[in-house]
Each structure stands twice: as structure tokens, then as C-alpha cells.
Design a protein around this nucleic acid. Structure first.
Length: 153
DNA sequence: GCCAACGTTGGC
DNA sequence: GCCAACGTTGGC
């Protein structure tokens, strides 16, 4: 089992949006950073779990938990000329960008705010808490995963 | 709205 | 291959 953290700005796509999807499932499109792309393409597998993190919000926070329900495949938004994620350099026969499918598993009644996380012992070294961390797809260690889950019983 | 951190681009 | 310029992210 591996664990992840996925960032999204709730104004554009929140955990409530995901919850309202058919099957509470969508594909995680729009990742346009190579390090994040590599995690999605190479390391994320069906059955893995991920935190759904709200960035750019008044109180940035982990909002819930999602499950990866499909291994990586080409990001369709890269091939749609009208999409803000369109990338003319991404070749359908050799795609540059990838998505996985995610399904909402849990929504925290009280989101775990970044401020709260910063006060938790045992999260030393967590990518999210590092100065200048901007990666929108990050691995989470099993230890950190457990510590964070225990915050909400 | 500010600004630090970071990634990408492009001239050389 | 270096690095300045530029654009974006994201907390505050």
C-alpha cells in the first residue's frame, strides 16, 4: 500500500464536487509538473489512498480521503484545444500528461487545517509542511498517514 | 494583494 | 551548460 496527497483549489474543484460526481469518481486532470506527473504515471496504483487537500483556501486543509481506482492513462484534457490544460506538444500516441481515477472515500466533518498539522508531533519531514513546497502530487509516508488519520479518530 | 519559492524558457 | 527573466503556486 502507498499513500499520497493531492492538492486542489476548492474554488475550482473541491471534495464536495467530487462527492457529487457519479460514483463519487472523477479523473485527476490538469497536472502539468513533471515530478508530479512521474508520481502519477509510474507510482500511483489502483487501491492506493490519498488525502484530498484544499490549497489556496482561506484555511488550507486536508478535506478528506480518496482512493485511486484506476492506474494512469493519458490526460484527455491535454488533447482538447479549448481546455485550459491543452498542450499541443502532447502526442496521443506518446502522451506527456497522465491522470488516474479517484473515488471519494471520506470527507472529514472538520477538515484538518494546515495550521493544525504544523502543530502535530510526528509529522517532521512531511513534504506538505516543508518551506516552499508546491508539489501538487506528493507521496505520504505510512507513518505520517497514520498520524494524520488518528487526528480524527 | 504581497511575495518567497520554485519551475520553465531562451539567449548566449 | 549557465543563468537571467518570467510565470505560477500558494501561504499569509
Amino acid at each position: 500500500m502507498r499513500y499520497w496527497l493531492l492538492k486542489s483549489e476548492p474554488d475550482s474543484y473541491s471534495i464536495d464536487h467530487l462527492w457529487a460526481e457519479p460514483g463519487r469518481t472523477t479523473f485527476w486532470d490538469g497536472v502539468r509538473n513533471y515530478q508530479a506527473r512521474n508520481f502519477i504515471r509510474d507510482d500511483m496504483k489502483k487501491g492506493h489512498l490519498a488525502f484530498f487537500y484544499h490549497s489556496g483556501a482561506p484555511a488550507p486543509a486536508i478535506a478528506g480521503i480518496v482512493e485511486i481506482t484506476r492506474d494512469a492513462y493519458a490526460d484527455p484534457s491535454a488533447f482538447e484545444p479549448g481546455s485550459k490544460y491543452f498542450d499541443s506538444k502532447s502526442d496521443p500516441d506518446n502522451p506527456t500528461w497522465f491522470v488516474v481515477d479517484v473515488k471519494a472515500k471520506k470527507k472529514f466533518s472538520e477538515p484538518i487545517t494546515l495550521a493544525e498539522l504544523r502543530d502535530v508531533k510526528g509529522l517532521d519531514g512531511m513534504e506538505l509542511l516543508k518551506r516552499g513546497s508546491r508539489l501538487s502530487v506528493q507521496p505520504v509516508s505510512e507513518r505520517h498517514w497514520k498520524v494524520i488519520n488518528e487526528l480524527r479518530g
